[in-house]
Design a protein around this nucleic acid. Structure first.
Length: 641
RNA sequence: GCCCUCGUAGCUCAGCAGGAUAGAGCAAUCGCCUCCUAAGCGAUAGGUCACAGGUUCGACUCCUGUCGAGGGCGCCA
C-alpha cells in the first residue's frame, strides 16, 4: 500500500482527484504550445480568496508560453512537441523566485544546446513589470526574480484576509468523510491512539481549509466479542468487590479502570448482581495458566455471565462498561482538541439490519459461498490474497461484515471521498474492504485508507511495551497532562504518517527547549510582546495596511520573511492535498526562524515612523500566518510565554 | 514463505512531479543580552543519500535485485 504523493498538477496516480481538480491539474503544465491550448492554459476557477503570489506565478507562466509560441512560429522549436516544461519555485532563494526548465526539456526536440535555447526564450519574453530580472543558470534553467513591490503588496493582503489567508476553494465544497481513532471502547485511549487522533483531526481541518465540506466520524465498535469480554471483566471485578474469591481470566481486561467501573456498580447496586463464585466456573473450559485455552475460557465465562445474570442485568453491566469508557474517550479527545460530527455505532448497523442486508446483497450477486459451516466472501475475485469470512459457523457475523455495511453506508450517504485513518497493523485489511465495495458495485477508489505507523515509546532510553489487555500502557490522558496538548499534537504530526516514530517520553515530558512547538509559539509571543511595547510607548499602529509605503523594507531578512509569507497558501495546499500535516509544521518552523533572525538583526520600534509603520505591518502579517498555521494544527498561539 | 512500510550527518527527521553545490533541529566547537522576552541569533564542523544494477541529457527521487529494521498475513477485533 504505497502512499504516493499527490502533486497539485498530477492526477495520474490518484484518479479520484481527477474529479475534484480537473481544472487545477491543467494549471502549471505546458501541455503544448498551440493557441487553443495556450488560451485554455489556466482555466482555474476564480478563488474566493485570491493568493497574490500564485497569480504572479500564472502571469509568469503566461510570459513563458508567449515566448515559446513565438519560437515555435520561428521554427526554433517543434510546435508539436509535448513537453514537461514547468514553472516552479526556485529551490534556493539565491536563484530568484521562480524557475523554468523549459530550455532543458525542449533542447532535445529542438536539437539545440539548452543554454542557447534558454537565451532565445529570454529574448522572446515579453516585458513585464512583475519581473525584476531573469537569467540563465546551471545547465539551462531560467530564473525569474520578482520585483520587490510585488512581494510588498502581500502585506496588506494578508492583514485584510486575516484568518482566511491561505485558505482556498480547491475542494469546491465536495463532501469528504474522515474517520479516525475509532478505538474499541474497551479501555482508555493510549498514546498509540494519540497519533491517529492528532493526525486525523489535522488532516480533516486541512481539507476543510482548502474548501472541502468535512464530516468527522468515530466508528464505535460497541458490538462484538471484545465488548463482551469487557462486560464480563467488569462483572468479575464486581464479584471480587462482593468478597467473592475467584481467579481472574488471563484474557480479561485487567486495567484499573475496570475496577473503577466495577466499584460504581457495587456502590450503586450493592449486591444485586452477585452470584456465588463456585457456580460461575461450572462447565467453563480451563484457562491458559491451568493448561487450557484462554480464548475458550473467556468465551465460556461470557456465556456464564449472560446465563447467570439474565438478559436485562447482563445488558446493564455491558452498557455501564461501554458508556463509562465511551464518555471517558469522548472527554479525553475533546481535551486533546479532537472533535467529531458523529459517533457512529456498529450496533446500530446490526440492529437496523444493515449488516444482514449487505450480506444478502452479496449472496444474491453470487459473491458468497459456504465452507465449513461458515459463509465466505470471495474477495480474491477482486485482488485480495484470500477469501474472508463474513458469518462464522456459530452464526455470528464478523467484524468485517459490519465494516462492509459501514463503508457501504458511508458511500450511500453521498460522500465523494471517504478517508479512513487506521493503524498500520490494519494494512492487510484494506484490500478486503475495497473488494467488498467493488462487489457491491461501488467505486472503491473513493475510499482512501491512510495508515499511521505506531509511535514507539521510549522511557529511560528503553522501549515501553504496551498491551491494553494487561493494563500496561501510557494513556493519552497521562501524556496530555504531562506534556500538554499543544506539544503532544505538534510532536505527533511532525512526521509523515507512514514513518515509524520514536516518541521519547522523557524528552516530551521535560519542558525542554528541544520541543519545536515552543519555538514557533515563541515567535508569536514575541510579536505580541513587541506590539504591547508599542502600545506602552503610545505608538499607534496604522489601521489601514494598504496605506503604508513598504518600499523601505529592503533588508535581506525582510525579503526572506516576505517570501516565506507568500509561500503559506502553497504550503497549506500541499499539506492538505497530500494529507501531510508535517509539511505545515516544517513550514511554520521555517517561518519562525525567519522571524527570529529578523528580530535579532533589526529593531522594529525605531524612530523613523515610516520605517516603523512598515515593519510593524510586516510582523503583524507574520503573526497572522503563524496564528493561522498553528490554528490548523490545533495548537494554541500564546500571547505571552 | 508471501505482502506492506522504512533505510539520507553522531541522534531525530525534511527533501516539494527526476533538475542546479542533498537541507533543518538536537548534540559538538566558537561568538552575540546597558538594546522590542537569550524559550532567541550568527559562525564552524559533520554525508559514498543501505548496497548493486537498470531507465536518460540528468536519479536521494522511477524500475529490478540484495542486505537490514518494523508491521501484517486466524471462522481476532
Amino acid at each position: 500500500m504505497g502512499r504516493k504523493r499527490i502533486k497539485l498538477c498530477s492526477t495520474r496516480r490518484y484518479p479520484q482527484f481527477q474529479r475534484f481538480f480537473d481544472n487545477v491539474s491543467k494549471c502549471n503544465k505546458f501541455s503544448g504550445i498551440s493557441h487553443e491550448q495556450a488560451n485554455s492554459w489556466y482555466p482555474c476557477p476564480p478563488l474566493k480568496v485570491v493568493n497574490p503570489i500564485s497569480e504572479m506565478k500564472k502571469q509568469i507562466e503566461q510570459l513563458v508560453v508567449t515566448a515559446l509560441q513565438q519560437l515555435a512560429a520561428q521554427d526554433m522549436i517543434p510546435s508539436d512537441s509535448l513537453t514537461a516544461a514547468k514553472i516552479e519555485r526556485a529551490r534556493d532563494s539565491k536563484h530568484g523566485d521562480f524557475a523554468t526548465n523549459a530550455a532543458l526539456v525542449l533542447a532535445k526536440p529542438a536539437g539545440k544546446n539548452p543554454r542557447e535555447l534558454a537565451q532565445a526564450i529570454i529574448d522572446a519574453l515579453p516585458a513585464s513589470e512583475l519581473v525584476e530580472k531573469c537569467d540563465i543558470a546551471g545547465p539551462g534553467f531560467i530564473n525569474f526574480k520578482l520585483s520587490s513591490t510585488a512581494y510588498q503588496s502581500l502585506i496588506p493582503t494578508i492583514i485584510s484576509q486575516a484568518d482566511r489567508y491561505g485558505r482556498s476553494e480547491l475542494g469546491a465544497g465536495k463532501k469528504v468523510q474522515v474517520e479516525y481513532v475509532s478505538a474499541n471502547p474497551t479501555g482508555p485511549l493510549h498514546v498509540g491512539h494519540g497519533r491517529g487522533a492528532a493526525y486525523g483531526s489535522v488532516v480533516a481541518d486541512l481539507l476543510e481549509a482548502v474548501g472541502y465540506q468535512v464530516h468527522r466520524e468515530y466508528y464505535v465498535n460497541d458490538a462484538g466479542r471484545q465488548m463482551d469480554i469487557l462486560a464480563t471483566s467488569v462483572w468479575l471485578r464486581y464479584l471480587e468487590l462482593c468478597d467473592e474469591s475467584l481467579t481472574f481470566p488471563a484474557n480479561g481486561y485487567k486495567g484499573d479502570y475496570v475496577w473503577d467501573i466495577a466499584a460504581t456498580l457495587h456502590r450503586d447496586h450493592a449486591e444485586d448482581y452477585k452470584v456465588a463464585a463456585e457456580t460461575l466456573f461450572e462447565g467453563v473450559p480451563a484457562d491458559e495458566p491451568d493448561g487450557g485455552d484462554k480464548e475458550a475460557h473467556i468465551d465460556g465465562l461470557i456465556q456464564q455471565a449472560k446465563k447467570l445474570l439474565g438478559d436485562n442485568r447482563y445488558r446493564f453491566v455491558f452498557e455501564l462498561g461501554l458508556n463509562t469508557i465511551l464518555d471517558d474517550i469522548r472527554d479525553d479527545l475533546s481535551l486533546f482538541g479532537v472533535n467529531y460530527e458523529e459517533w457512529y455505532s456498529e450496533r446500530s448497523l446490526m440492529e437496523s439490519g444493515a449488516v444482514n442486508q449487505v450480506i444478502e446483497r452479496l449472496r444474491g450477486s453470487g459473491h458468497l459461498y459456504e465452507k465449513g459451516g461458515a459463509l465466505w466472501f470471495r474477495s480474491t475475485d477482486f485482488g485480495d490474497e484470500k477469501d474472508r469470512v463474513v458469518v462464522r459457523d456459530n452464526g455470528q457475523t464478523t467484524y468485517f461484515a459490519s465494516d462492509i455495511a459501514y463503508h457501504l453506508d458511508k458511500l450511500q450517504r453521498g460522500f465523494e471521498r471517504v478517508i479512513d485513518v487506521w493503524g498500520a497493523d490494519h494494512h492487510g485489511y484494506v484490500p478486503r474492504v475495497k473488494a467488498a465495495l467493488q462487489a457491491l458495485g461501488e467505486d472503491a477508489d473513493k475510499l482512501d485508507v491512510l495508515l499511521v505507523q505506531f509511535a514507539i515509546l521510549y522511557r529511560g532510553g528503553e522501549k515501553v511495551q504496551m498491551s491494553t489487555r494487561s493494563g500496561e500502557f501510557v494513556t493519552l490522558r497521562e501524556l496530555r497532562k504531562e506534556v500538554g496538548a499543544d506539544a503532544a499534537r505538534f510532536f505527533y504530526v511532525m512526521r509523515k504518517c507512514e514513518q515509524h516514530m520514536d516518541f521519547d517520553l522523557d524528552l516530551a515530558k521535560s519542558q525542554s527547549n528541544d520541543n519545536p512547538v515552543y519555538y514557533v509559539q515563541y515567535a508569536h509571543a514575541r510579536i505580541c510582546s513587541v506590539l504591547q511595547q508599542a502600545a506602552e510607548q503610545q505608538i499607534t499602529i496604522a489601521s489601514d495596511a494598504s496605506a503604508i509605503d513598504y518600499a523601505c523594507l529592503v533588508e535581506s531578512q525582510e525579503e526572506a520573511l516576505l517570501t516565506n509569507l507568500a509561500k503559506y497558501p502553497e504550503a497549506l495546499e500541499l499539506s492538505a492535498l497530500n494529507e501531510e500535516p508535517h509539511q505545515l509544521t516544517h513550514y511554520l518552523r521555517e517561518l519562525a526562524t525567519d522571524f527570529h533572525t529578523y528580530y535579532n538583526a533589526h529593531k522594529f520600534l525605531v524612530e523613523d515612523t515610516k520605517l516603523r509603520d512598515a515593519r510593524l505591518q510586516l510582523i503583524l502579517a507574520t503573526r497572522q500566518v503563524i496564528r493561522n498555521g498553528l490554528g490548523l494544527l490545533g495548537v494554541s498561539a500564546p500571547e505571552k510565554m
